[in-house]
Nucleic acid binder design. Structure first.
Lengths: 347, 347
DNA sequence: GTTAGCACTCTTACCTTGCGAGTGCTAACT
DNA sequence: AGTTAGCACTCGCAAGGTAAGAGTGCTAAC
C-alpha cells in the first residue's frame, strides 16, 4: 500500500527526531516542529502508521519509535544522500593521509577517521589476497645455517621469514632452489601456491629437494598464509558508551564480546556484498547483530582485490551521513591503491 | 609499629574474604570462619587496624575493606607464593604453544592464556629492540623501477619494503649501494642507524648517492622505525564486565578508554622495571590507574632484549595466583626465545 | 583481655504517591 | 470526510517513606 504524502512526511519527521534524540517521539513534538497539522491529526496518522508496521509503541503512553521497516523505507526511498561539502572532504582527506607511510597503514587510518566522524564503531579490513599472484621468490644466505625466504607478490607485497637449516647450504644450492621455486610458483595465486607440490621437480638435485622438504616448505607455507591473511582494524569501540541504547551494562558487555571475536567479525563483514550495503537490525543474519545496523562499502585494489570498511551501530544511526562518509573513504582508498599500484604521481 | 599476630591473622582474613567476595567484611563473618575470637574481639582489633590505616569503612555501618597499605603488606609479607601444580603448568604450556608458528605469535598467545587464567585484562609487549643491531642490508631488483629494501638484524628479525625509484637503477648501482649501506650500518643498533648519516660516504658515486638520498633513505628510516617498534597485545578486555567494581557504566567506560590508547599503555607498561613488579592503586604514577593494580613481569631474548607481560585489574585481585602465572609465563617465553635464538632443539 | 548485649547508623529494597508525557476516543467544527 | 479540541486514561519515573538487615561502637560484666 502506498503511503499518503503526509504519512510519509510524518514518518520522516519521527525518524529524524528519533535519530537525533533517541527518545520516543510524541504527536505534539511533530505538530510543533513541522507544519503537518494538529497533534490530534498527527496522532491519527501515527496510529495508521503503526498499524502498517512503520512505528511501534514502547508502552501505551509513550511516543512512537520507528520500526526496522521504517528505517528500511527511509534508507531506500526517503534518504537524500548528503553530499559532503568540500571542506568536509578536505578535512577527511587531511586526516586520512596524515601520518601514513604504508598502505596497510592507510586502511587502519580509514577506520580511525570513520569512527571519529560518525561517533560509531568503525572497522576496515585489508583486501582479500586470494587473487594476488607470486612474482618472485628469493633465498638469501644470512649465515652458515640461516637463510631468508622472501616472497614478492604481483601486488608489490613482500613477505619473508628467517629459516634455520639442518646443515649449511651452498650458495649454489640456494640459487637452484630459488630458481626452481620461482619457475614453479610465479604467476600462481597465493592459494594455488599453497596446494601445489613441487617436490617432484627436484629429481635432478637430491640435496635441494631434501632441503626444500625439510626446512623450507614449512616456512614457505606459513609465509604464504601470512600473505593471504586479511587484517582487521577497529576503532571507536568506546564510542558506544555515549549511546543511550548501550547505557545498560549488559548491552555494552554483549557488544564488546561480539567485537572482540575478531575472527568472527572479519568473516561476517568480509563476506558482505560489494558496494555500499546497509543492513538494519534483524536484516543481519547474525542473531547478535539483530539490534544493530551495519553499513559497509568496499574498495578495490588493482580492480580485483577487495577490502571493506564500515561501521556498526544502533539501528538509530545517521544513515545519510554515514553512507556519504563511508563512500567517500572507500573512493579515496581505491584511488590511493591505484596510484601506488600503477604509476606513482609526484605529489 | 608491629602488628600482633592476631591482628595480622585478622587482616589476612579480611583481605582473603574481600578478594573473594568484593563485599565489605564484617566481624561476625571472620569470627565464624576463623578461630580468632568473638565478633566483639574482632571488632576491637579491626578498629585498631583501621586506626593504623590497614582497613577502611565505606560507611559507619558496613564491614571493613582493606586499604592499599593492607594489600601492600599482604603482597610483601603475608602472601605465600602458590607454586603452580604440574598439571596447571602443563595445561598452561599446552595452551601457550598450541597454534604457534612465529615467536611474535607466542607473545600474543601469552596474553591470551594469561587473561583466560586470571579472568583479568592481560597484555604482552614484544621486546624493545633498541639493542638489536643490523647485520645485513640488501637491495633486490623487482622490476625496472621497483626494488626491495631488506634489513636483517642480528636477532634474526627481517624487515623489508618495496621502494619505487624515480628512474631505473642498474644492478651495479644497487650492488654498490647495498654494499656501502651494509658496510656503514652493520653492527650499529637500530637507533644508532637512525641517526647516522652516510651520504658523505658516496663521494665516489654520485648516482648511488642521489638514489640513496631521494628514494631509499625515507624507506630505510621507515623500515628501521618499524623494526624498532614494539607491539602490544591485549586480551580479556571484556573480563572486566564480570567484576562488580566495574558494574558502573562510567567506570567501565573509563577503563576502556584507558586501554584503547595503546600508545600510552605501551609506554606506561614498557617503562616498568624488570622482574615481577606489583603496583597497587595509588602506587601507580598514573592517575587513571589509581584504582587498579598492575602486575608485570619481564622476559628476555638473548639476555638483552626485554619484553613484558602482565595484567591490569582491580586492587582486589588474587595477587598470589596472578604472580605465579605471570612468572611461569615469562619463564616460558624467555626459554622459548633462547631456544630459537641459539641452537634449535629437535622437538 | 575477652565477650555479651544493646542502641545506633546506614544501606537497600520495597511500596506509595504524584507528576508529566502521551495516547485514544468522542464530539464538534470546517 | 477530514481536522481539531477536549478529556479521561495509561504508564513510566522520580521522590518520599518505611521496614529489614547488616554491622558497628560502646558499656558492663566475665
Amino acid at each position: 500500500m502506498d503511503l499518503t504524502e503526509r504519512k510519509l512526511k510524518i514518518l520522516q519527521a519521527v525518524i529524524a527526531d528519533f535519530i537525533r534524540t533517541a527518545e520516543p517521539v510524541g504527536s505534539r513534538t511533530i505538530s510543533k516542529n513541522y507544519e503537518l497539522g494538529s497533534p490530534a491529526t498527527i496522532r491519527n496518522e501515527m496510529s495508521d502508521l503503526e498499524e502498517l508496521g512503520y512505528l511501534t509503541h514502547p508502552h501505551t503512553s509513550s511516543g512512537r519509535v520507528p520500526s526496522e521497516k521504517a528505517y528500511r523505507l527511509y534508507v531506500n526511498e526517503m534518504m537524500k544522500k548528503t553530499e559532503l561539502t568540500q571542506e568536509q572532504k578536505d578535512a577527511i582527506a587531511r586526516d586520512l593521509y596524515s601520518n601514513v607511510t604504508e598502505l596497510e597503514n592507510l586502511i587502519e587510518r580509514a577506520a580511525h577517521v570513520l569512527s571519529e566522524i560518525t561517533n560509531l564503531t568503525a572497522f576496515a579490513i585489508s583486501p582479500r589476497k586470494e587473487q594476488d599472484t607470486l612474482r618472485y621468490i628469493n633465498l638469501l644466505p644470512v649465515d652458515a645455517k640461516t637463510i631468508i625466504l622472501m616472497l614478492v607478490a604481483e601486488s608489490g607485497k613482500v613477505s619473508n621469514t628467517a629459516v634455520r637449516l639442518d646443515k649449511p647450504a651452498s650458495e649454489e644450492t640456494l640459487r637452484i632452489l630459488a630458481k626452481n621455486m620461482t619457475y614453479n610458483y610465479s604467476g600462481k595465486t597465493l592459494s594455488e601456491a599453497l596446494t601445489t607440490d613441487i617436490i617432484k621437480t627436484f629429481k635432478a638435485d637430491a640435496e635441494a629437494m631434501t632441503m626444500f622438504e625439510n626446512n623450507i616448505a614449512p616456512s614457505f607455507i606459513r609465509t604464504l598464509e601470512d600473505m593471504l591473511n586479511v587484517n582487521l582494524y577497529m576503532d571507536g569501540l568506546t564510542n558506544i558508551f555515549s549511546l543511550p541504547e548501550y547505557n545498560d551494562i549488559e548491552k555494552a558487555r554483549t557488544f564488546f564480546e561480539l567485537v572482540s571475536r575478531k575472527q568472527d567479525i572479519m568473516q561476517k563483514l568480509g563476506s558482505r556484498g560489494d558496494g555500499v550495503l546497509i543492513t538494519i537490525g534483524g536484516e543481519n543474519e547474525d542473531e547478535e547483530l539483530s539490534d544493530c545496523s551495519v553499513i559497509t562499502a568496499s574498495y578495490h585494489v588493482d580492480g580485483k582485490l577487495v577490502g571493506k570498511l564500515g561501521v556498526i551501530g544502533p539501528t538509530r544511526m545517521k544513515y545519510d551521513e554515514v553512507t556519504s562518509v563511508v563512500e567517500y573513504l572507500t573512493d579515496n582508498l581505491s584511488k590511493a591503491f591505484r596510484l601506488t599500484e600503477g604509476e606513482e604521481d609526484d605529489s
